[in-house]
Each structure stands twice: as C-alpha cells, then as structure tokens.
Write a protein that binds this DNA or RNA. Structure first.
Lengths: 244, 244
DNA sequence: TGATACTAACTGATCGATCAGTCAGTAATT
DNA sequence: AATTACTGACTGATCGATCAGTTAGTATCA
C-alpha cells in the first residue's frame, strides 16, 4: 500500500534539468538517460511480445538496469506501457495535426489525397523510428487499435479519438454531402487499411512472391493512398445517392 | 521427453464415435463432449486475453475440467491454440470457397461486390458464432492476422494463404488489366478493412456518438462492401493508367 | 571550510503468486 | 486385460512487485 511516488512519471525531474550532464564521469549518469533507456527497451520488448507476453525482467536486461529501477521510475508494468504509448502518440498526433493545419489553411481546394497522406505518414515515420526486428512502436499501435482489452481501448480513446474527430471533420469539409455516419465508417475503414502497413507481417511479400514489399514504406504508402481515397470516394458517392 | 500421444488431436476418437451418448448418467460423459468443451472455453479465454495472457488454468475452470485434462487432450497450450485456429479456419474457408465457387460457375458477368461479400460474410458468421463478451474467434483471427509472432504468421500462412490466392485470382479475373502486384495490395488492404469489423472495439460507435453501430454486423458488412469495392476499383484504375 | 541533513537514483535479495507441464493412480469401457 | 478418459497433487520456473540498503550529489547551517 505504501508506495513511492514514482518521481520520474511527472516528467519534471527527467525531461528537464540536464544541467550536470557534463560531469558524468564515474558512476553518476546524466539525468534521464536510464529513464529513456528503459522506455526504449520496453518499446522493443512490448512490440515483440505484446503486453502480457513481455516481462519486466527482459526489459530491465535489455536496458542494462536493475529490475527494481523500472518499478522505481514507472511503478507498475502497466504504467510503463502507458508511458510508452503517451510518448509516441504525442509525437505522431502532433505531426498529424501540424500536417492537417497546413493543408486546411491553404486557399487552394483541398484534395483528399493530401488529407490521407497527412493521416498516415506520421504513423510510419515515428512508428518505425526505433524499429529493430521487433518492429518499433507501430506494432504496439496495431495491438492497441485492435484490442478488446479495456486498458488498450482507454489508450485509444485518450490519445487517438481527438485527432480522429479532426480527420473526420476534414472528410466532411472536402465533401459536404458526405453524411457524418459514412464519414466515421470511412475513417474507421481507412485506419484498418493503415494497420496493414503498421503490422509489417511480411504477408504481402509472401502472397505476391516478392512483387509487393511491405518493408518499402514509401511505396506502400503510395498504394495505400490510392486504395483509401477510392474507398472514401465510394462512401461519398453512397451518401450522395441516399440524399438524392 | 516421454510424453503421451495426445489421443484427441488426430480427431478420429473425438470427432466421430458419439455412440454411447444416451447413457451419460454418472461420471462417464459422452465421447468428445469435454474435448469440445475445452475448445469452446479456450476460444473464449484466448479471445479475451490473447495467447500469452490466457492461462490454461482459467480455460480448465471455464470448461469445468481438471487442468491436466487439457494437457492430456492437447499436450501443450500452443497446440490447443492451433487446434482452435484449425477448427474455425476450416469452417470459414470452406464457406468462403463454396461461395466463390458458386459465383465463378455462374455464366452471368461476375460483380466485384459478390466476391467481396463472399470474402467477408463467412468470417463474421462463424467468427462471432461463440461470441460472448470476449468476442469469439474473430478476435483471435485479428490477432493472428496482425501479429509479428512466428507462430501466428505460420498459422496465417497455413490456413489463410491458399484461399487468399483464390480471391486474388478472382480480382484478376474480373479485371484482367489489374496487375498481380496491385491485386495483392488490394487484397491485403481489404483484409485490413475487414479486421476493423472483426476486432469489435466499439470505437466507431464511440466516434460517431451512436450513429455507427459495430455490433450490427449486417449493416457494417454493407458499408464495408461499398468501401472495399471503391478501394479495389481505384487500384484497377491505377493499373490501367500505368499500362497505357 | 567542513560537518550535517536530506534527496534522487539505484541495486541485490527476496517475496508470494502464478505459470505450463508432469506423473502416479483411479474409474469406466471394451 | 487392455485401452481410454480423467484427476489431484505436485514440480521447477518465472512472474510482478517490494524491501532495506547503498551511493552520489546538493542544500543548510556552523
């Protein structure tokens, strides 16, 4: 019951105050280094084994710290997982929001392709940033998005629902006759397509005998934009025919 | 090392021979009943917690049998998981193949919508068949499809690659100018859309404030067919413009 | 300047709980 | 008698979490 206050999680001690970083000679490491090392190691291990399949011991070993240090900084395994989700989700959605803003404030007519690319490019660029063979954060994101678990659904709601509403609004802005209902379906289905890219199972390569390469992210994104825009436009056409 | 031969797994003893079913009074249960009870319970528990998060103990408790009986019938937790995948995948893909056959042998021109519906309807009808709050086999299927784990990828390859090739062929048959490469992409992306339906996270309901209902499978399937056909046709248009 | 007090960072050892899997033995059927 | 179905009791391993300490740096006060 009596439990330390997890000093790292408020971010103040760790994120700021790297003042004595130059005098890190003997044992004292610069502030926040091992904190970040735990996050990086945990991201790899969670991506590889999932939440339940990952062990705090393996994370500690990969990070080169004592297991107890993880509990010192993050309290529980669950809070460690949430810290990872918070870190990367902020990166992804800040980039998404910035992309969307720059599109919306331009005075030329908005093209659907721009919006779709703004939706997906950040997820692959930060999602695969720490990609080892584990696959980086994108694998974690896929499992969060498809999970029936209450913890994962809460994370999706907290970190991804706000930006989702912005993109759904953008769909409706491009085509005013698109009903809200169909816009939400269109968004959900598009995210589903994106998951194919994030999961990186190698299946498309296998099914095509090498014609498709799902490790070539840039090419895959091109294909996805074509498919997703086609899907969204079909929903638009459906909305129009229903209103008529 | 010396290990019993898992008498149930060859299916002969269990699947057939329910002859003494009427005299199930005291302790002797009709043959195959507890075998199936374990499979049903395991499906629910695996769907709820994933492979790593599920425990053989919980499965045994839910099935109303001793934990050792599970090891007696299925040997290991992994083989139990594979048995579940084998059972439902056969159901799903037999139905898919039958649907596709009846479409292909008709002499009227094949419509893309028919093929897409043949692809998805069986997954929802058997995937949600044992649906409790856990979500049935569809949740397991989603995790297999998106997993980076070697075990899951092997299952996908064994049970789903053959039927995948048949549907990719069907895409190419409908539109001969669609390149093989784009047909595989189109198939993969379509499966991604289908996962949205299988995962049943309730997110579409949440994002639309109730306008979309992802527990209304029939309505969701209609929307998906529209979107997926739009996506596939966009890939077809792309293939055509590249060949020209 | 130097002793004192305090704090954040960190560790080794260990906790009870739970894990998948094993095994000897029982009960019923053939 | 032999085979199949089944169980309770158990194993070693591993799990997340906790604990009492240690170390190093910093602020306070004489």
């Amino acid at each position: 019951m009596t439990r330390r206050a997890s000093p790292g999680l408020n971010g103040v001690t760790q994120a700021g105050a790297v003042k004595t970083a130059e005098e890190a000679g003997g044992k004292a490491k610069p502030a926040g280094v091992r904190f970040a090392a735990i996050l990086d190691a945990a991201e790899i291990v969670f991506a590889k084994n999932g939440f339940a399949g990952a062990s705090v011991r393996e994370i500690a070993e990969k990070a080169g710290v004592a297991q107890a240090l993880i509990h010192y900084h993050f309290d529980t395994k669950e809070k460690l997982f949430e810290a990872i989700a918070a870190r990367r989700s902020a990166e992804i959605n800040d980039a998404r929001a910035a992309n969307l803003d720059s599109i919306l404030k331009s005075n030329v007519p908005i093209r659907l392709e721009q919006v779709v690319e703004a939706l997906f490019r950040p997820t692959i660029e930060v999602g695969h940033s720490l990609a080892t063979d584990g696959g980086g954060f994108s694998r974690i994101l896929v499992s969060i998005a498809n999970s029936s678990d209450a913890r994962d659904q809460k994370l999706a709601e907290t970190y991804y629902d706000p930006i989702a509403h912005r993109f759904i609004d953008a769909f409706c802005l491009i085509e005013p006759e698109l009903t809200r209902k169909d816009a939400v379906w269109a968004y959900m289905f598009s995210i589903g397509v994106g998951m194919t890219m994030m999961a990186r199972t190698g299946r498309s390569t296998r099914l095509s005998s090498g014609l498709c390469d799902d490790s070539n992210i840039e090419e895959m994104l091109e294909e996805i934009v074509v498919y997703v825009c086609g899907g969204v436009r079909a929903m638009i056409a459906k909305s129009k025919s229903e209103k008529r």
